[in-house]
Amino acid sequence: MAGLIRAEFRKIFTVHLWWALLIPVVVLSFGAGWLGTAVGTINDLEQTLGRPLPLGLLTQALSTNFSTIFAALFGTLAVAGEHRNRSITTSYLTGNPRGAVLGAKLIAYTGMGVLYGLVNVLFASLGALLGAGLDGFGNPSDWFAVGGSGLLAMVLWTLLGVGFGALVTNSVVAIVVLLVYKFAFEFIASMFLTGSHAADVTAYLPGAAGNGIVSNLAVPIFVSAVAGPDEPYTPQGVFELLHFFFGGTYGHPWWSSLLTFAGYTAVFVVGGWLLSRRRDIT
Protein backbone atom coordinates (compact mmCIF):
# COMPACT_ATOMS: atom_id res chain seq x y z
CA MET A 1 0.00 0.00 0.00
CA ALA A 2 2.85 2.38 0.79
CA GLY A 3 4.18 1.88 -2.74
CA LEU A 4 0.78 2.74 -4.23
CA ILE A 5 0.56 5.90 -2.14
CA ARG A 6 4.05 6.97 -3.25
CA ALA A 7 3.03 6.29 -6.83
CA GLU A 8 -0.03 8.51 -6.44
CA PHE A 9 2.03 11.40 -5.10
CA ARG A 10 4.49 10.88 -7.95
CA LYS A 11 1.61 11.14 -10.44
CA ILE A 12 0.32 14.29 -8.76
CA PHE A 13 3.62 16.16 -8.74
CA THR A 14 4.72 14.98 -12.17
CA VAL A 15 2.01 17.03 -13.91
CA HIS A 16 1.15 20.69 -13.43
CA LEU A 17 -2.53 20.30 -12.53
CA TRP A 18 -2.04 20.46 -8.75
CA TRP A 19 -0.49 23.93 -8.79
CA ALA A 20 -2.55 25.16 -11.76
CA LEU A 21 -5.71 24.65 -9.69
CA LEU A 22 -3.99 25.98 -6.57
CA ILE A 23 -3.34 29.38 -8.20
CA PRO A 24 -7.05 30.39 -8.33
CA VAL A 25 -7.38 29.25 -4.71
CA VAL A 26 -4.62 31.70 -3.77
CA VAL A 27 -6.16 34.53 -5.80
CA LEU A 28 -9.74 33.96 -4.63
CA SER A 29 -8.78 33.48 -1.00
CA PHE A 30 -6.65 36.59 -0.85
CA GLY A 31 -9.18 38.63 -2.85
CA ALA A 32 -12.13 37.54 -0.71
CA GLY A 33 -10.19 38.23 2.47
CA TRP A 34 -9.05 41.67 1.37
CA LEU A 35 -12.02 43.00 -0.59
CA GLY A 36 -14.60 41.37 1.68
CA THR A 37 -13.38 43.41 4.64
CA ALA A 38 -13.99 46.61 2.66
CA VAL A 39 -17.78 46.23 2.69
CA GLY A 40 -19.12 49.71 3.39
CA THR A 41 -22.05 48.63 5.55
CA ILE A 42 -19.77 46.69 7.88
CA ASN A 43 -17.39 49.62 8.18
CA ASP A 44 -20.30 51.89 9.09
CA LEU A 45 -21.46 49.34 11.65
CA GLU A 46 -17.99 49.22 13.21
CA GLN A 47 -17.97 53.00 13.55
CA THR A 48 -21.46 52.99 15.08
CA LEU A 49 -20.60 50.32 17.63
CA GLY A 50 -17.19 51.78 18.33
CA ARG A 51 -15.41 48.43 18.25
CA PRO A 52 -13.80 46.19 15.63
CA LEU A 53 -15.80 43.27 14.27
CA PRO A 54 -14.42 39.86 13.22
CA LEU A 55 -15.20 40.33 9.54
CA GLY A 56 -12.16 38.19 8.74
CA LEU A 57 -14.15 35.16 9.89
CA LEU A 58 -16.87 35.88 7.34
CA THR A 59 -14.39 36.40 4.53
CA GLN A 60 -12.72 33.15 5.57
CA ALA A 61 -16.03 31.40 4.98
CA LEU A 62 -16.53 33.23 1.69
CA SER A 63 -13.09 32.31 0.37
CA THR A 64 -13.51 28.67 1.40
CA ASN A 65 -16.90 28.30 -0.26
CA PHE A 66 -15.54 29.67 -3.53
CA SER A 67 -12.24 27.76 -3.41
CA THR A 68 -13.59 24.29 -2.63
CA ILE A 69 -14.70 23.83 -6.25
CA PHE A 70 -11.04 23.75 -7.32
CA ALA A 71 -10.27 21.05 -4.76
CA ALA A 72 -13.28 19.09 -6.03
CA LEU A 73 -12.12 19.43 -9.65
CA PHE A 74 -8.63 18.35 -8.66
CA GLY A 75 -9.99 15.27 -6.89
CA THR A 76 -12.31 14.45 -9.80
CA LEU A 77 -9.41 14.25 -12.22
CA ALA A 78 -7.61 11.81 -9.91
CA VAL A 79 -9.58 8.98 -11.50
CA ALA A 80 -11.39 10.53 -14.47
CA GLY A 81 -8.10 11.94 -15.79
CA GLU A 82 -6.53 8.50 -15.72
CA HIS A 83 -9.46 7.11 -17.70
CA ARG A 84 -8.98 9.87 -20.25
CA ASN A 85 -5.29 9.15 -20.86
CA ARG A 86 -5.72 5.37 -20.39
CA SER A 87 -3.18 5.16 -17.58
CA ILE A 88 -5.87 3.66 -15.33
CA THR A 89 -5.27 0.27 -16.98
CA THR A 90 -1.66 0.19 -15.81
CA SER A 91 -2.67 1.43 -12.36
CA TYR A 92 -5.20 -1.35 -11.88
CA LEU A 93 -2.96 -4.07 -13.29
CA THR A 94 0.04 -3.12 -11.16
CA GLY A 95 -1.99 -2.23 -8.06
CA ASN A 96 -4.36 -5.18 -7.91
CA PRO A 97 -6.88 -5.30 -6.24
CA ARG A 98 -8.54 -2.23 -7.68
CA GLY A 99 -9.81 -1.15 -4.30
CA ALA A 100 -6.22 -0.67 -3.15
CA VAL A 101 -5.64 1.79 -5.99
CA LEU A 102 -8.66 3.85 -5.01
CA GLY A 103 -7.63 3.64 -1.35
CA ALA A 104 -4.17 4.98 -2.20
CA LYS A 105 -5.76 7.81 -4.16
CA LEU A 106 -7.99 8.71 -1.23
CA ILE A 107 -5.01 8.87 1.13
CA ALA A 108 -2.87 10.89 -1.27
CA TYR A 109 -5.67 13.31 -2.13
CA THR A 110 -6.53 13.74 1.53
CA GLY A 111 -3.02 15.11 1.91
CA MET A 112 -3.53 17.38 -1.09
CA GLY A 113 -6.86 18.53 0.33
CA VAL A 114 -5.04 19.53 3.51
CA LEU A 115 -2.55 21.48 1.40
CA TYR A 116 -5.34 23.30 -0.46
CA GLY A 117 -7.08 24.01 2.85
CA LEU A 118 -3.95 25.42 4.47
CA VAL A 119 -3.26 27.64 1.46
CA ASN A 120 -6.86 28.90 1.56
CA VAL A 121 -6.69 29.71 5.28
CA LEU A 122 -3.29 31.39 4.95
CA PHE A 123 -4.14 33.67 2.03
CA ALA A 124 -7.66 34.48 3.23
CA SER A 125 -6.13 35.49 6.56
CA LEU A 126 -3.45 37.59 4.86
CA GLY A 127 -6.11 39.35 2.82
CA ALA A 128 -8.24 40.01 5.89
CA LEU A 129 -5.17 41.20 7.80
CA LEU A 130 -4.45 43.69 5.03
CA GLY A 131 -8.05 44.85 4.84
CA ALA A 132 -9.19 44.82 8.47
CA GLY A 133 -6.06 44.55 10.55
CA LEU A 134 -5.39 42.18 13.41
CA ASP A 135 -8.65 43.16 15.13
CA GLY A 136 -10.64 41.73 12.22
CA PHE A 137 -10.26 38.13 13.43
CA GLY A 138 -11.85 38.27 16.87
CA ASN A 139 -10.55 35.80 19.42
CA PRO A 140 -7.72 33.50 18.30
CA SER A 141 -9.87 30.50 19.24
CA ASP A 142 -12.55 31.69 16.80
CA TRP A 143 -9.99 32.03 14.02
CA PHE A 144 -8.68 28.52 14.68
CA ALA A 145 -12.22 27.12 14.77
CA VAL A 146 -13.29 28.72 11.48
CA GLY A 147 -9.95 27.92 9.84
CA GLY A 148 -10.15 24.32 11.01
CA SER A 149 -13.67 23.93 9.65
CA GLY A 150 -12.46 25.35 6.34
CA LEU A 151 -9.69 22.76 6.29
CA LEU A 152 -12.24 19.98 6.85
CA ALA A 153 -14.45 21.36 4.08
CA MET A 154 -11.57 21.44 1.61
CA VAL A 155 -10.56 17.85 2.38
CA LEU A 156 -14.13 16.57 2.05
CA TRP A 157 -14.67 18.37 -1.25
CA THR A 158 -11.43 16.83 -2.56
CA LEU A 159 -12.50 13.33 -1.55
CA LEU A 160 -15.99 13.85 -2.97
CA GLY A 161 -14.30 14.76 -6.23
CA VAL A 162 -12.28 11.53 -6.18
CA GLY A 163 -15.44 9.49 -5.67
CA PHE A 164 -17.35 11.44 -8.32
CA GLY A 165 -14.53 11.01 -10.81
CA ALA A 166 -14.52 7.26 -10.15
CA LEU A 167 -18.26 7.16 -10.81
CA VAL A 168 -18.35 9.22 -14.01
CA THR A 169 -14.82 8.55 -15.44
CA ASN A 170 -15.42 11.03 -18.29
CA SER A 171 -13.39 14.04 -17.17
CA VAL A 172 -15.20 16.60 -19.34
CA VAL A 173 -18.65 15.47 -18.20
CA ALA A 174 -17.52 15.32 -14.57
CA ILE A 175 -16.11 18.86 -14.64
CA VAL A 176 -19.17 20.33 -16.35
CA VAL A 177 -21.57 18.59 -13.97
CA LEU A 178 -19.67 19.81 -10.90
CA LEU A 179 -19.54 23.41 -12.11
CA VAL A 180 -23.17 23.54 -13.25
CA TYR A 181 -24.44 21.92 -10.07
CA LYS A 182 -22.46 24.05 -7.62
CA PHE A 183 -23.00 27.41 -9.28
CA ALA A 184 -26.34 27.05 -11.09
CA PHE A 185 -28.55 24.05 -10.43
CA GLU A 186 -28.60 24.14 -6.65
CA PHE A 187 -29.08 27.91 -6.59
CA ILE A 188 -32.10 27.61 -8.87
CA ALA A 189 -33.48 24.70 -6.86
CA SER A 190 -33.08 26.66 -3.63
CA MET A 191 -34.92 29.64 -5.11
CA PHE A 192 -37.87 27.42 -6.04
CA LEU A 193 -37.93 25.83 -2.58
CA THR A 194 -37.76 29.15 -0.72
CA GLY A 195 -41.08 29.86 0.96
CA SER A 196 -42.44 26.37 0.37
CA HIS A 197 -43.07 23.60 2.89
CA ALA A 198 -39.88 21.93 1.65
CA ALA A 199 -37.68 24.99 2.28
CA ASP A 200 -35.80 23.22 5.09
CA VAL A 201 -34.58 20.64 2.57
CA THR A 202 -32.15 23.16 1.05
CA ALA A 203 -29.84 22.89 4.07
CA TYR A 204 -29.30 19.23 3.22
CA LEU A 205 -28.41 19.71 -0.44
CA PRO A 206 -24.73 18.95 -1.17
CA GLY A 207 -23.66 22.50 -1.98
CA ALA A 208 -25.47 24.09 0.97
CA ALA A 209 -24.15 21.44 3.34
CA GLY A 210 -20.61 21.91 2.06
CA ASN A 211 -20.84 25.70 2.43
CA GLY A 212 -22.42 25.37 5.85
CA ILE A 213 -19.41 23.60 7.33
CA VAL A 214 -17.68 26.97 7.59
CA SER A 215 -20.45 29.55 7.23
CA ASN A 216 -22.75 28.04 9.85
CA LEU A 217 -19.90 28.52 12.30
CA ALA A 218 -18.57 31.90 11.14
CA VAL A 219 -21.92 33.71 10.85
CA PRO A 220 -23.16 33.04 14.42
CA ILE A 221 -19.76 34.05 15.81
CA PHE A 222 -19.92 37.30 13.86
CA VAL A 223 -23.52 38.04 14.88
CA SER A 224 -22.63 37.39 18.51
CA ALA A 225 -19.76 39.85 18.23
CA VAL A 226 -22.06 42.49 16.72
CA ALA A 227 -24.93 41.98 19.18
CA GLY A 228 -22.71 41.77 22.24
CA PRO A 229 -23.36 39.83 25.43
CA ASP A 230 -26.26 42.07 26.48
CA GLU A 231 -28.40 41.35 23.39
CA PRO A 232 -30.51 38.23 24.06
CA TYR A 233 -32.14 38.06 20.65
CA THR A 234 -30.99 38.80 17.12
CA PRO A 235 -33.60 39.02 14.33
CA GLN A 236 -33.65 36.08 11.95
CA GLY A 237 -33.34 38.45 9.01
CA VAL A 238 -29.83 39.43 10.10
CA PHE A 239 -28.70 35.81 9.95
CA GLU A 240 -30.45 35.19 6.64
CA LEU A 241 -28.84 38.25 5.03
CA LEU A 242 -25.36 37.19 6.13
CA HIS A 243 -25.96 33.61 5.04
CA PHE A 244 -27.12 34.83 1.64
CA PHE A 245 -23.77 36.55 1.05
CA PHE A 246 -21.42 34.25 2.93
CA GLY A 247 -23.12 30.85 2.59
CA GLY A 248 -24.76 28.45 4.99
CA THR A 249 -28.30 28.20 6.31
CA TYR A 250 -30.07 29.91 9.19
CA GLY A 251 -30.59 27.76 12.27
CA HIS A 252 -28.51 24.88 10.93
CA PRO A 253 -25.47 23.98 13.09
CA TRP A 254 -22.11 23.63 11.39
CA TRP A 255 -21.58 20.09 12.68
CA SER A 256 -24.86 19.01 11.07
CA SER A 257 -23.63 20.40 7.74
CA LEU A 258 -20.35 18.55 8.28
CA LEU A 259 -22.09 15.22 8.90
CA THR A 260 -24.43 15.76 5.94
CA PHE A 261 -21.64 16.55 3.53
CA ALA A 262 -19.48 13.73 4.90
CA GLY A 263 -22.40 11.44 4.10
CA TYR A 264 -22.48 12.65 0.49
CA THR A 265 -18.73 12.16 0.26
CA ALA A 266 -19.03 8.59 1.57
CA VAL A 267 -21.81 7.79 -0.92
CA PHE A 268 -19.72 8.96 -3.89
CA VAL A 269 -16.56 7.22 -2.67
CA VAL A 270 -18.33 3.91 -2.01
CA GLY A 271 -20.24 4.18 -5.29
CA GLY A 272 -17.03 4.87 -7.20
CA TRP A 273 -15.32 1.93 -5.50
CA LEU A 274 -18.15 -0.46 -6.35
CA LEU A 275 -18.27 0.58 -9.99
CA SER A 276 -14.50 0.58 -10.41
CA ARG A 277 -14.40 -3.07 -9.35
CA ARG A 278 -16.63 -4.06 -12.28
CA ARG A 279 -15.75 -1.54 -14.97
CA ASP A 280 -14.01 -2.71 -18.14
CA ILE A 281 -10.65 -0.95 -18.48
CA THR A 282 -9.50 -2.42 -21.79
Rank of each mutant, 00 (worst) to 15 (best):
R51F: 07
A78F: 13
F13N: 11
V269C: 06
F70R: 03
T202W: 01
N43Y: 02
L217T: 06
L259F: 14
A108C: 00
T76A: 14
A78S: 14
F70K: 08
L193K: 05
V226T: 06
I107Y: 03
Y181F: 15
G50S: 02
Q236T: 09
G33L: 08
N65F: 10
F164D: 00
L21G: 02
V114N: 02
A38I: 07
A71F: 09
H252M: 14
L217C: 03
M191Q: 12
L275R: 13
W18L: 11
F66M: 15
P52C: 03
F9D: 06
S256F: 05
G31T: 14
I213L: 04
P220R: 01
I221N: 06
Q236E: 14
P206R: 08
F66T: 11
H252Y: 10
T59D: 06
L151P: 01
I188F: 15
Q60W: 01
G111F: 04
T37G: 10
A104E: 07
K11P: 00
A20H: 06
W254Q: 10
T265E: 15
A108Y: 00
N216D: 07
L53G: 03
L45F: 04
G75N: 09
S276F: 02
N211L: 07
A203K: 02
P54M: 04
T202K: 08
G195T: 03
R84H: 14
A61I: 03
V177N: 12
V101I: 02
P229G: 15
T194S: 13
D230V: 11
Q60T: 09
W143S: 08
G95H: 04
V155D: 01
G99Y: 06
A174N: 05
M1K: 07
F183T: 06
T158R: 10
N85R: 11
G117K: 06
G31D: 14
A209R: 01
T260N: 15
F187I: 14
A203T: 03
R6Y: 08
F74Y: 13
V168I: 12
S125Q: 04
I69P: 07
D44C: 05
Y264L: 11
P140V: 07
L160K: 09
V27S: 13
V226M: 10
T90G: 07
G251L: 01
A262D: 12
L178C: 09
I12N: 07
I107E: 05
W143K: 02
P140I: 07
W273M: 03
L73M: 11
W157S: 14
G207D: 04
A262E: 10
S196C: 09
G95R: 01
V176S: 13
G56F: 07
G3V: 09
L93E: 03
E82T: 07
P253T: 09
G247L: 03
Y233G: 01
L4Q: 05
G56H: 09
G147Q: 10
V270W: 09
T110R: 03
S63G: 15
V214L: 07
